[in-house]
Amino acid sequence: MFQLEKHDAEFSHLNLRKESHGESKVPAATITFKAASSSLILDIIDDKLRPSFYEAPSSGSQQNLPIDGNNLTALKFPYLKEQKIGMKIKGYELEIHSLLEHIEPLFFADAELVIEKVSFVEGGSVELTLKVNTTIESDDFAPLLEAWDRGAVSISLAPPSGQAFHKAGIYPIEKKDLP
């Protein structure tokens, strides 16, 4: 399963609303983050993504660094803009941490993770746009707005199965979780 552990991100958008749950309306939010990562994270989403958009660098171009074992670092289509993915997975847990860990993290359970978009960066990096749809308590309004106002945060996303974190902080998405 896709998973992040205290991964730096930009808290880019917050949409507060009310959702119908039975006959009552409850506060809910869509929380949007932008997170940069090695393009290896694409293998976790779908193992065909990275080789579709990246290739081994040719002679005379920027060569890959042996830091993470990523040998596909040159963009196949440098003119492409961000691409939509739109993968939705229910049952995630989200924690929003401050970068200096001086503020108590915000925790949201039973959230829907949407891996919405990916932007490709020369050199073997990507920027993911991640959305989290969740219900919220009224006590979370002010801390959530404060985190949004700070912008730079650290996020943890735990999959529905509650598996332990991998040392890289990510896991592949299982086919049964796809829509």
Rank of each mutant, 00 (worst) to 15 (best):
Q3K: 06
L4Q: 07
K6T: 07
H7E: 10
A9C: 07
E10G: 11
E10N: 14
H13C: 07
L14H: 09
L14F: 09
R17L: 12
S24G: 04
V26F: 11
T32N: 02
F33A: 06
I41V: 15
D43S: 08
I44S: 12
I45H: 02
F53S: 02
A56K: 13
S61A: 06
P66M: 05
P66E: 11
D68T: 10
G69H: 04
T73Y: 00
Q83H: 12
K84W: 05
G86N: 12
M87E: 14
K90W: 06
Y92I: 05
L94Y: 10
H97L: 02
H97I: 05
F108E: 06
D110K: 11
L113E: 06
L113H: 07
V114P: 00
E116W: 07
K117C: 03
K117T: 12
S119C: 04
F120I: 03
G124F: 03
S125Q: 13
T129H: 01
L130Y: 04
L130E: 02
K131W: 00
K131E: 11
V132F: 05
N133W: 04
T135R: 13
T135I: 14
S138V: 13
D139N: 11
D139P: 00
A142R: 08
A142P: 00
L144D: 07
L145A: 07
D149I: 05
G151D: 10
V153A: 01
L157A: 05
Q163I: 14
A164T: 15
G169M: 03
I170H: 12
I170D: 09
K176T: 15
D177G: 05
